[in-house]
Nucleic acid binder design. Structure first.
Length: 565
RNA sequence: GCGCUUUUAGCUCAGCUGGAUAGAGCAACGGCUUCCUAAGCUGUAGGUCGCAGGUUCGAAUCCUGCAUGGCGCACCA
């Protein structure tokens, strides 16, 4: 059941009865409570086309709106707005049904598609840093969301495990002896040391270059060393994923090296499509309207970023069969993706009906608006950031003294990590965002703690009332009415967020929902003596549906909830 | 130089396909509790939506120009 679609149908029916021809109608949420639950604004533009008075058309339309079941009242307002109020009894019934349903009334997509979500993509030469945070959590959320809506989601972790720097690292690993795992605990340090050796020792540098060639030509000894290095490095990433509750596994890893063998074919196929041109010794694709070409093969025969991405694109479209391929990557690479997508379509690597999208996001800044760095200007390791979040969360817990250490640790983890994720996801992903611990761990405003508190508050009701809820929801007052409508909007909100790949639509919704619930709870007692049984059951049911909706929403965001806070 | 992008309240941000008096939170100043989690609710104040034009019955939203901060522009990924 999609709320707006339902109302759209009613409006459309009214148009039909009024004998007015329209294409599509679209109601929107009312901008203010006085204007009802939903409003239809389409009459004004229609009046223009028909050269008639908009108020008259609106009036005519209103007289034909079916007021028996869903819509209770329809009113013309202003220049020709139509305001719509829903039947409280209908809202109540729909909420009852949602509560009975495991999926809270959220239907699965009628025609699910295969979607590849490419996200996280850490570089194996270095430890994950804050720059990977946004891709990882936005991508994971998108994957969760699409999965929930019924699409077949293929998560892809396109790790960087190929290229010249690995020659250096492998050479250094071998120099350190057979068991390098101890030295690899701190990849950053390892990288630095290797780099120093590379820069100061010519024979080491030569060896490193040889290794590059050897790895790429399939030398078994070198490949073994390389594999070992990647395993350890990937292990670091998995620690971070574990802390962050990210669902990526080894099965989702399709590294750059995976496409290596296909790269010569990409070039060949581009040649046969007549898209390739040599320029200054490099193989290039010149796109229409662009002066600077996309290089797919270097003068020395080496391949580039774009080449690998082309190989990956056609693998995903043709082998995996994806109909939507989403790249959750920093906005600075938008030009790259625009070009690669264009080449993929023009070359026929990816057929026209496949939706290619760059889910771009802005840079993470510090409190003063500069790119997020450590005090000495280095990159902040993601592990350190997450550990700090847990420590800070622990400090922020109100009566931490009353909790046992294990419980405090568990709470701090959920709250700290949840706060980092929620803060990021609640921002419109395309804008740069300011990373601010105080704001993040604040209980006020659109934060994860406010959500957690709202949820925990409801759970505490059900600790006092542990019987079965018997009876039905009745919408008694305006706040219950608004809460009910908000609960019913969950489904459409999710579909919208999925379409736009916009997690902040989910957080905005959850915040509005939680706020409404808090208001409802302030003025409508539930377990107090004076409340009659019937009313109590109705309010309990609303509370439970709210809790379930919050939990489901946070679950899609990859954030755990706690019953007590 | 070319291209992409940002600009909304003192601060951090919403604002979906153009719609009614532009919304939250923080910060400021008030109010509510013999306790169903006050880590809550609530009132007041605060904005020529960067500027100037244009399209439209109607523009923060679309178009053009300018200003502003950021980013990207050939063999790194």
């Amino acid at each position: 059941m999609k709320l707006k679609s339902e109302i759209n149908c009613i409006i459309k029916e009214a148009f039909k009865k009024a004998d007015i021809d329209v294409q599509a109608v679209m109601v929107t949420e009312a901008t203010k409570p006085e204007f009802g639950d939903f409003q239809f604004n389409g009459v004004m533009s229609l009046a223009k086309i028909l050269k008639q008075n908009p108020r008259e058309i609106a009036q005519k339309l209103v007289s034909h709106i079916d007021l028996t079941c869903v819509v209770a009242k329809a009113e013309v307002a202003g220049p020709g707005f139509i305001n719509l109020w829903l039947h409280p009894s209908w809202i109540a019934l729909a909420c009852d049904q949602a509560l009975q349903d495991e999926r809270l009334g959220v239907a699965k997509r009628e025609t699910p598609i295969k979607v590849v979500v490419d996200y996280s993509g850490p570089n194996m030469a270095k430890q994950m840093h804050v720059g990977h945070l946004r891709s990882t959590i936005i991508g994971d959320t998108l994957a969760n969301l699409l999965t929930y809506l019924g699409d077949e989601v293929i998560r892809q972790n396109h790790i960087g495990d190929w290229g010249t720097q690995f020659g250096m690292l492998i050479a250094y690993l071998e120099e350190k002896g057979s068991d390098g795992s101890a030295d690899l605990k701190d990849l950053e340090q390892f990288y630095k040391e290797a780099k120093t050796r590379f820069d100061t020792d010519a024979s080491f540098a030569n060896k490193a270059r040889e290794y590059v060639v050897k790895i790429q030509s399939g030398d078994q000894h070198c490949l073994n060393l390389w594999q070992k290095f990647i395993d350890i490095s990937l292990g670091h990433c998995e620690d971070v994923y574990g802390k962050l509750c990210i669902k990526l596994t080894r099965e989702d890893v399709k590294a750059e090296s995976f496409y290596n063998e296909d790269l010569p074919n990409v070039i060949e196929d581009l040649i046969s499509q007549g898209l390739l041109k040599e320029s200054n010794g490099a193989q290039c694709v010149f796109l229409e309207g662009e002066e600077i070409p996309v290089i797919v093969q270097k003068g020395d025969g080496g391949y580039l970023y774009a080449t690998t991405d082309l190989a990956a694109l056609r693998y995903r479209a043709n082998v995996l069969g994806a109909k939507r391929i989403s790249y959750v990557v920093d906005a600075r690479q938008s030009e790259h993706f625009k070009q690669v997508f264009k080449i993929a379509k023009e070359s026929g690597f990816v057929s026209g009906d496949v939706k290619l999208e760059h889910v771009a996001f802005g840079t993470m800044m510090d409190k003063s608006g500069k790119p997020f760095k450590t005090r000495d200007g280095g990159t902040v390791k993601l592990v350190d950031l997450l550990d700090e979040a847990v420590v800070k969360a622990k400090e922020s817990i109100k009566d931490k003294e009353s909790l046992c250490p294990e419980e405090l640790e568990r709470l701090a983890k959920i709250i700290g990590i949840g706060a980092v994720k929620y803060a990021d996801l609640s921002i419109n992903r395309e804008s740069n965002y300011i990373f601010d611990w105080d704001k993040m761990l604040s209980i006020e405003g659109n934060t994860s703690l406010y959500m957690q508190y709202a949820y925990a508050r409801i759970q505490s009701i059900f600790r006092r009332f542990d019987r079965e809820i018997k009876g039905h929801i009745t919408i008694g007052d305006e706040i219950e009415h608004r809460l009910g409508v908000m609960l019913l909007r969950f489904e459409e909100m999710l579909y919208r967020a999925a379409e736009d790949a916009a997690p902040n639509q989910i957080t905005s919704y959850l915040y509005e929902l939680a706020t409404l619930f808090m208001r409802f709870y302030e003025q409508n007692p539930i377990l107090k003596e004076e409340v009659c049984e019937e009313l109590r059951m109705s309010r309990l049911a609303l509370a439970r549906l709210t809790a379930k909706t919050i939990k489901e929403g946070l679950d899609i965001l990859g954030i755990e909830v706690v019953d007590k806070i």
